[in-house]
Amino acid sequence: MPLWANPRLGLLILLVALIALFTALRPAFMDVTLTLVPLQSDVSVYAVVGLAQLAVLSLGHMNMAVGRMAAMSAFAMGLAYDRLGVSLVTGLLIGLLVGTLLGALAGLVISRTGVNSFVVTLAMDFALVGLITILYTRFTDGVAFGGLPAGMDALRNDTFADYCTGDVCGPEISLVVPLALVAVLAVGVLFRFSRLGREILMTGANGRAAELSGIPVRSRVVQAHALSGLLAGFAGFLLAANNGAFSASIGDAFLLPSFLGPVLGGTLLAGGAVSVLGTVLGAGLTQVIYKGLNLLQFQLDQLNLYIGLVLLAALSLDRVRHVVADRKGARV
């Protein structure tokens, strides 16, 4: 595969070009506390959101409930912190378990009934919207949990620059970044090197052949959806950490970005091929555009309009690149 046909490289170039453009138009784009640190946090959240969708795109499935799975996980975390007073890590694990179970449930329904994943997760999304409202009304003042565990504040506000050994301080990197990085690496290793991840991809590439090659197809479907739920829950945690609150609105804005990252990064909707690095770059690109246009003082509606247009253009360019590559005989 020629270098120019690599979608990741194209994304990277586009990313750098946009950063240069925004910096030229608004030097404040390079302001560390105003722009760069919040940008890191946002990219961290949406990279993980993208991975949550990627986990099922690997099968050629979709998870339309990605936002609501995140919300349910966040609710479980908030409840555990507020009512049980558990530590940061324990609460996180409880929430992740809830996300995983929700994903597994979706996977189970899909693999047992054979109903399309789009329909199953969409129905699940509807059900969870209602459930979340009921739960927050019952257990909180209706908006968010009050009690937060120790360490939550640091996750929200600190960067490594706040931690010094003698005179040497860390870089201006927000504390959620390494957390997201762990998820990225884990998912990358899973799909690249592990038998489980590879078998999920083969199931996505050709389910019939996978079954006839001895892959337990049904379990792989359940596992991929469980992973999606787990990652959605983790994204919910990261967003709650960024916002400083476990609230009912977590996950509301996850659905569209969850597709944008993977698709921009070259993950096939048809299944069988994923790009973890591409998803991170795709999430980065989306957030840079968002931040940049924000700095250029676009109104929210205009912002959405232009983001839509920019993404459409990016995807079309990507398609053109594919077609040209195909003509030159290079399979992408």
Partner: peptide, 20 residues
Amino acid sequence: EEGLFLDQPITRNVGVTVWR
């Protein structure tokens, strides 16, 4: 339709039964 994963490399097509 049933024997091969056409969009996957040969290595994975052969390796699929032996990864375990």
